[in-house]
């Protein structure tokens, strides 16, 4: 029974990892690809870590490291995805044509034109 649960949970993780990889190929622009590459992979890794917990038990070297890795994934993945998305937006990487909205923060003092991509007009940045 334990092996069955282990296998099912690990397969769920594998499924999400696979859909994340396919999503990187299928999504239409860099921003949606960032979402697929970073966070769907988190959802892929967490069930695999849970499977490890089920297989090896929660109290032990594996359990403690699983907890540490889960926390690090939870903190570092959104932070890394934020850095990618921010860099892409500020350097003017366009969204796809079907994007429904393009709002951007108002320019701050001392910020040059072109340093920030959109101006809030939906059509301006769509490539």
């Amino acid at each position: 029974m334990k092996e069955l649960v282990f296998a099912v949970v690990a397969l769920v993780g594998l499924g999400f990892s696979l859909s994340g990889a396919v999503g990187v190929l299928r999504m239409p622009d860099v921003y949606t690809r960032i979402q697929c590459s970073s966070k769907t992979v988190t959802m892929g890794a967490l069930p695999v870590l849970a499977a490890l917990l089920i297989g090896e038990g929660p109290f032990g070297q594996y359990g403690s490291r699983v907890l540490l890795i889960a926390v690090l994934l939870g903190v570092l993945n959104p932070a890394a995805a934020h850095a990618l998305a921010r860099a892409a937006y500020r350097t003017g990487v366009p969204m796809w044509r079907g994007a429904v909205q393009d709002e951007s923060l108002p320019q701050r003092n001392g910020e040059r034109d072109g340093e920030r991509g959109g101006s809030g007009k939906p059509d301006e940045r769509q490539g």
Partner: peptide, 11 residues
């Protein structure tokens, strides 16, 4: 940002 629907781009 952990929720896959949203990603903070700037603040």
């Amino acid at each position: 940002s952990m929720i896959v629907d949203n990603q903070l781009a700037d603040l």
